[in-house]
Amino acid sequence: MTPWEIDPARSAVLVIDMQRDFVEEGRPMEVPAARGAIPGIRAVCDAARSAGAPVIYTQHVLLDEFDVSPLETAYNPKLRQLGMREGTDGVEIVDELAPMPGDVVIAKHRYDAFHNTRLDSVLRSIRGLNGIDTVIITGTLTEVCCESTARSAFMRDYKVALVSDATGALLEGAQKATEAVVATFFGRVLTSAQVINELAAARVG
């Protein structure tokens, strides 16, 4: 039994960290599977915009002035010198998914897109007070920033939909593992086609 269905009037799409440094070949934090997620992300975003649901992008940003995410760089030392630097083209959203007028872009410094960002405030006000109660998560890395954000959304009482073919993992087996965890404990795992169908059905209804 489906616990809930997507209502475009109360939903927002999150596009997590689809930046050049993650997506493009040869970049410092390349995630090959992220490139495969682009068609699904684009389809979901287009359907959401058509249904009047907001699309919100995040950008993972590191700084040269100081180590803004010291444990992240401790576990991945190459990030102390390169990758996702403020003011570089590496933080830019890839051209294939470029934000449209009316979309929101939010910078973050931790895996969780809610942590010390304006995301929660945007979600709770962009469609009137507490108008959004569902987040549709796309982007990369599935097992890191997408899963961290999904868990955090759940803790804030948002309904969570993780889009299986619109997210890209790095580690072997991580995509299926995250999907299993989310589906069991934190929300629904849907394909892009299922998301689009629910958005369309709600509009017709």
Rank of each mutant, 00 (worst) to 15 (best):
T2Y: 11
D7V: 01
A9R: 15
S11K: 14
S11N: 13
A12L: 06
V13N: 08
V15T: 12
M18K: 11
Q19T: 08
F22E: 08
F22T: 11
V23P: 07
V23E: 11
E24K: 15
V31N: 14
P32N: 04
A33K: 14
I38D: 04
I38Q: 08
P39L: 01
P39G: 03
A48P: 00
R49I: 04
G52F: 00
V55I: 10
Y57K: 12
T58Y: 05
H60D: 12
V61P: 05
L63K: 15
D67T: 07
V68I: 11
L71T: 14
L71R: 15
A74N: 12
Y75D: 08
N76Y: 15
L79D: 11
R85L: 10
G87P: 02
T88V: 03
G90M: 02
V91A: 09
V91N: 10
L97R: 09
L97T: 11
P99R: 11
P101C: 06
G102R: 13
D103H: 07
I106L: 09
I106W: 01
K108E: 00
D112C: 03
A113N: 08
L119M: 01
D120Q: 13
L129P: 09
L129D: 13
V135W: 03
I136Y: 02
T138S: 07
T138V: 01
G139I: 00
C145E: 08
C146D: 13
E147G: 05
T149R: 12
F154K: 13
K159C: 00
S164D: 01
A166Y: 04
T167S: 15
L171T: 14
T178A: 11
V181C: 08
V182G: 02
V182M: 00
V182T: 02
A183D: 02
T191Q: 04
A193Y: 01
Q194H: 11
V195Q: 08
I196P: 01
N197I: 07
A200W: 05
